[in-house]
Amino acid sequence: MTDPLFGVGAWFAHAVFAVLVGVGLFVLVDDDNLVKKVIGLNIFQTGVFLFFVTSAYRADGKAPLVTGPGPYVNPLPHVLILTAIVVGVAVTAVALALVVRIYGEYGTLREDVIREVRAAERESAAAEAAEEGSR
């Protein structure tokens, strides 16, 4: 049976999955702001959710509330995604707590500035150590 939901574009949702994963990954690796990086991680993750939910979908299926004759869509990927959403929030919470801690330590959310500060700290520590050694 052909697919009435997407017809010719039956692969459109898969393409959207690929684009969302790409956009999320781009924000995750490119943006200098640490909060934006966490948002990128969330976009990446929801892209994967889209892949799972569409893989569970069948055009002639009903929602998996078993009250009459089937067919139903596949309930198993839904369960996996429910678990993944909750775990994703837990990951986001830990990441943001670390971001807040980093901000308290360095006074900035910009990754490049933090790198510079850390490099300067290492240099001054090395210079101090060299001074100690020459004495």
Partner: peptide, 14 residues
């Protein structure tokens, strides 16, 4: 993507 089963097909491995 072209190798994946189309969205909505009932005979997918899932």
């Amino acid at each position: 993507v072209p190798a994946l089963p189309p969205v909505g097909a009932a005979d997918t491995p899932a």
